[in-house]
Design a protein around this nucleic acid. Structure first.
Lengths: 219, 219
DNA sequence: GTTAGTTTTTATACATGTATAAAAAAGAAC
DNA sequence: GTTCTTTTTTATACATGTATAAAAACTAAC
């Protein structure tokens, strides 16, 4: 990590910005799987270990990459007047942006709050919650709940997609559902054959609305 | 993966059950970090690659381990009469069990529905939701929302704990919050100095209640 | 017994992240 | 200039997950 001290010591040949930019190019072009420290080093014209003077480890590199993406989030200017709807729109925007990069799941667990660029969205959610009458403390807790829900949705959905992309083995789930005893688990048995279809539907917004309603009181 | 075909071919010297049992012992005694395929092979008296005839890869091994844990979940027999409260109690039980093993986060992204043993909890949540008047389809979606929220909470909290356990560097968050402009982000600025304290509080139940309220209608 | 077929185990090899220590490239002090 | 200090880069090495292919251990057919 470069100190702001006066110019001394061997001058750097690569910068963190250069590393991140190259990493982003690789990820965009070939996916996160192809991003290795050796490959990245070669592309910036250096050696693998030199990278470690600019980023702590690969995980931090991915977090920085994620920040880079988050900074590009479209902050649509026309916001609904209803604070409740404003919260929904904002959370949905975050989720849409993050879900767009499928490698997110591996990083999302690394940091709950993204960089400066994401704070604007947090502000908007807090503002909506407080306008609905919540105290600042409860607004923070409400934001956290929304973030848990959103992060969970992205991660679980990304994992499911990854599994589907892998190989079409009989699916653990199918085998589990096949053995359901309707006497013991009647509710599950009733929907067992539609489970895959039902869980494949995108109900993020429904759940989000329910959560917001519950947080701020009945609509 | 052992086929149920007639006894033929070289007889196995290790079994999946033996592998999982040994893995659990290692994880319980020394943590998930010390669980390596080589170490595990040595402890079951075999070679690393032999394990791969009984489990697909390390990730699946961890999922199986998680199932093993989930099977031990306490299913407290006295349930509240109020279906709403029954949902809350059940989801909280799942969360408590899973949060008890801190290595969970690395696996949780692997499978949304755990093994047979966890289905009982799913059933209870579905039952509560339907008793509140939701259709079977909406109950499944409601369960998914609860699962997203719960998984997100566990993962984010586990990641935060891991980060804290690592090293006490100036915390990315602190630096981000230090640069907040009260003019631009007033809501955030107002709680900036209490952010760490507020987000450290355990508000899982509050959020869960809000979500359930929102899913089934006002209380 | 010999051969063929099937299942499990082993040996070897490779890619990857990264720890460790040495080397290189600069300015500062003399 | 020479030497010291600081910063960055490089070389080497290791642990890990796992792919690949060969070997081993058994049954069935003849």
């Amino acid at each position: 990590m470069p100190q702001p001290s006066a110019q001394r010591g061997r001058p750097p040949r690569i910068s963190r910005a250069e590393i991140i930019e190259t990493a982003r190019r690789i990820v965009d072009a070939e996916g996160v799987d192809r991003l290795t420290m050796r490959r990245l080093a070669k592309e910036v014209g250096s050696t693998p270990m030199a990278l470690y003077h600019h980023v702590r480890d690969k995980e931090q590199l991915l977090v920085l990459l994620l920040d880079d993406y988050a900074a590009r989030m479209a902050r649509e200017p026309e916001l609904p007047a209803d604070p409740r709807e404003r919260i929904v729109v904002t959370a949905a925007a975050i989720r849409e942006t993050l879900a767009a990069c499928p490698w997110i799941a591996e990083v999302l667990t690394a940091d709950d709050l993204l960089g400066r660029s994401a704070l604007w969205f947090v502000e908007r959610i807090l503002d909506g919650l407080e306008e609905c009458g919540l105290s600042p403390e409860r607004a923070v807790h409400g934001y956290r709940a929304i973030w848990y829900y959103t992060a969970g949705e992205i991660i679980v959905r990304a994992a499911a997609a990854r599994r589907r992309a892998g190989d079409e083995r009989p699916t653990y789930r199918e085998r589990v559902f096949a053995g359901i005893d309707p006497g013991e688990l009647p509710r599950l048995a009733a929907v067992a054959d539609r489970w895959a279809e039902l869980t494949a539907q995108d109900t993020y917004l429904d759940g989000l609305r329910a959560l917001v309603d519950g947080l701020v009181g009945a609509p």
